[in-house]
Design a protein around this nucleic acid. Sequence first.
DNA 1: TGCCAGGCGGGGT
DNA 2: ACCCCGCATGGC
Length: 322
Amino acid sequence: MLKPTASLDLSGEAAAKGVDLFKTLSVYNFGFWFDGREAKVVLDLELPAVALVSVDGAARIYAPPGSDAPKLEERLLYSLGLRESLESFYAAAAADPLLSAFAREWRGWRLRSCDLWWALVTAICQQNASFRQGWGMLAKLISLYGKEVKLEGRGWVPLPPTPREVLKEPGKLKRAGLGYRSETVLRVAEAAESGALPSRDALAAEPVERAEAILRGVKGVGSYTARLALALALRRYELPPIDRWVRALAARAYGVEERAVEAEWRRRWGRWSALAAVALTVALDAAPLSKALARLESGRLLPEPGTGGPAELWRQPWAQPF
DNA sequence: TGCCAGGCGGGGT
DNA sequence: ACCCCGCATGGC
């Protein structure tokens, strides 16, 4: 059982940075981690440590006795994007044919980060799968491994399995519906356990192209997966994860050939390239490509209620196994 | 019921 | 620098 080790109020920091905690906590979140009012934010899978964060900014960190509270507080601020200034991102987005409406209505959104292992698993589950299939896999994976931690006085919080736990029961990956992606997740788990995969801090010290190459050293981790993981875990956005979905939408919106999309995307978005790609999935509710293209044609470039996209993932029954 | 989905690696040219 | 295929699974 984890006990409260620190309490803090994020409302001042959020207001100063223009961060909307509801948007930040709700986007790409599961119902078992966000209920519309309060989020469980996993800070450390190994300790473990979890923060309870209310949309009004009240936060409490739960960790084992003797944990480094200031370090966990800093990790919480980092993971909510409160250490990041997105002024230049939203300035660029305001003038962009894909994200101008998003920049107007969703300026307070920040990408939540997670650890490197879970970022890679998340990205692998998006390979060659629809939004719904990918996130369904993750929900089922968490449910099947069944890891939970109790917060004193606040009940149980589901946790993703660690690399070691996945290696101990590898068969659960296929039962979670990962199919051939299971082998890639197992190779990532082995690399993490053996030390072949650098820690997040070690990776963060590398030039971003080198960091991408290191992650691609694992068979089954390609450019898309590596770049998405760098965005989710390290908040490194220079390299865009261009999949066929972004490729087709950007070709249409920017009037370039599909093969020229990556260069054009990097030219327009620079150091915000990956963040812009993730923001686009939020704006278009990660709709299947044909629907997303139709949304683009009709100028419907904001999340729409009832579509069950990233902004409403937490409301979806298929993503709430607990 | 096939066909496709927010990739990837291995094989070709 | 391209092109093409198969891959395991789930949803329609």
